[in-house]
Amino acid sequence: MSLTPKLESLISALRRLPGVGPKTAQRMALHLLERDRDAAIQISGALADAAQNIGECEQCHSLSEQAVCDICSNAARDRKTLCVLESPIDLMAIEQTGGYAGLYFVLGGHLSPIDGVGPEDLKIDQLLDRVYQGEINELVLATNPTVEGEATAHYIAEQLRDVDVSISRIAHGVPVGGELEYVDGGTLAHALAGRRQMER
């Protein structure tokens, strides 16, 4: 069967999704058209709505439908602690734990010179401005424990060398419920280097 132009453009649009190749895109398109037109209309509506109406919170730069997101405008949260993250996905992961009550700041990536990502390409200036305003007491640098995440954390800390703010880095170590036998050498070395005094 030769494809109609509209079907072809639908398939190529679907292929832009991560993990969707030509076969999957074709199957998705045919499924929506042949078996589930209601879903097709629902998806197209939701997509258009999301693409037009979801923006960025002007304080934390995470995804938000309002100018300031629910977390940033929540008066019950600790407004003196700011957790710095690479992406909104990390924010969702930390929010799901329910163990953190402070505010967030999303950088939009990590420093990676070889990929051409420098300080200008992240929200580092906005973060520094936020700290200079003086409301933040503690900055928790929760960028990923990769070389690039580590470099990003170091770069931020270096810029705030003369600023009166406490700066911490999330711990790296053995996962809860894990067995030392199965932990990789790098993590184990980190866990040993960052060991803690036991309280007695």
Binding site: P113, Y132, Q133, E158
Partner: peptide
């Protein structure tokens, strides 16, 4: 130019002045 050189350069101080 090499991008990693930027990592050794501090963000300019004028910016800090602006925000204050």
């Amino acid at each position: 130019p090499l991008r990693s050189r930027e990592l050794f350069q501090p963000r300019s101080k004028e910016r800090k002045g602006e925000s204050e």
